[in-house]
């Protein structure tokens, strides 16, 4: 794992990726602190971070697009398969390297509140609490990016899908206000989601029975709930959309609450997507 980790880290600084990622993140946070902390003279650094998290939509896909897609394109994944290391080690090594690139930048950003505190009262606790959440959210999004990159051998495609998915996640709370909140609407939407998930399961496993079984079980479950306890489905869809938003949980920190459940949520999301990446890499062996 350390071999993959060191190799990846070296590759990031060999190519432009790490620098582009860093430049965008620092520029955005820089503009944010200029607007809030300097011009508006607000002493809350967390507002800058809540402004800056929009930049994730672009920079996370830029950072993660090549991580596995490029290996496939250059056929270097064959080397990784033939080396005496497991795919879990490969994914973890790559992920840790990405986290380190991200952490280096956060270390620079960490200095900002300290600098501002020289000139006035800055709420350092909320600032650093939000920074920690900023790190956790970024880590979850990077894991999502790794998974998307593992699905294709085209970097551009990986970046495009990544931007779309993160953007959707960013706006999912605003969008949730527009979707139907009736029970029937929820049932229809849930069925569509279940069918889509079934389609993905079929694509990944090529196992028809598993996909049909999955769809059947969930749709029957949803219909049963609909007929016996309609009230539970009221407003379910907007609820789910809001719950899935990684960004929404970050704003809790911005408001000054150190929410441990959100951190657990981010960690779970990261582990989930890394697990899927391992499966996606492993699946190439079984095509």
């Amino acid at each position: 794992m350390t071999a993959v980790f060191r190799h990846e880290l070296r590759m990031y600084f060999h190519s432009l990726t790490a620098y582009v990622f860093g430049a965008f993140l620092l520029a955005f946070v820089g503009i944010g602190s200029m607007l809030y902390n300097l011009q508006a003279a607000v002493s809350n650094f967390e507002f800058v971070l809540s402004f800056g998290c929009l930049v994730f939509v672009v920079i996370v896909p830029v950072l993660t697009m090549r991580v596995i897609a490029e290996e496939r394109k250059q056929k270097t994944d064959q080397l990784l398969y033939s080396l005496p290391i497991t795919t879990t080690q490969v994914i973890l090594g790559k992920y840790l390297a990405l986290l380190v690139v991200y952490l280096i930048l956060l270390c620079i950003i960490c200095l900002y509140p300290l600098i501002f505190s020289q000139f006035g009262d800055v709420y350092l606790l909320t600032s650093y609490g939000s920074l920690f959440a900023f790190f956790a959210m970024g880590a979850a999004l990077i894991a999502l990016g790794v998974f998307i990159s593992s699905l294709t051998d085209n970097q551009g495609f990986a970046a495009g899908i990544g931007i779309a998915v993160i953007l959707l996640n960013y706006y999912s709370v605003s969008l949730s206000e527009y979707v139907s909140s009736t029970a029937l609407g929820s049932v229809i939407a849930m069925c569509v989601l279940v069918l889509a998930a079934g389609g993905i399961i079929y694509c990944l496993t090529k196992n028809e029975n598993l996909a049909y079984g999955f769809c059947f079980l969930f749709i029957v479950g949803i219909l049963l709930i609909y007929f016996f306890d309609t009230g539970k489905l009221e407003g379910l869809l907007p609820d789910i959309m809001a719950k899935l938003s990684l960004f929404e949980r970050f704003y809790v920190f911005v408001n000054g609450v150190f929410d441990v459940t959100a951190l657990v949520y981010y960690a779970a999301a990261a582990v989930f997507f890394l697990f899927l990446s391992v499966q996606s890499l492993e699946k190439r062996r079984y095509n």
Partner: peptide
């Protein structure tokens, strides 16, 4: 493999060190 699995941005020395490390 049929197509040598090489990382184009690296030098042979760096590349071989990586593979050596991965081989323990």
């Amino acid at each position: 493999p049929e197509q040598p699995p090489l990382y184009m941005q690296e030098t042979p020395a760096e590349y071989l060190r990586f593979v050596g490390e991965a081989k323990g």
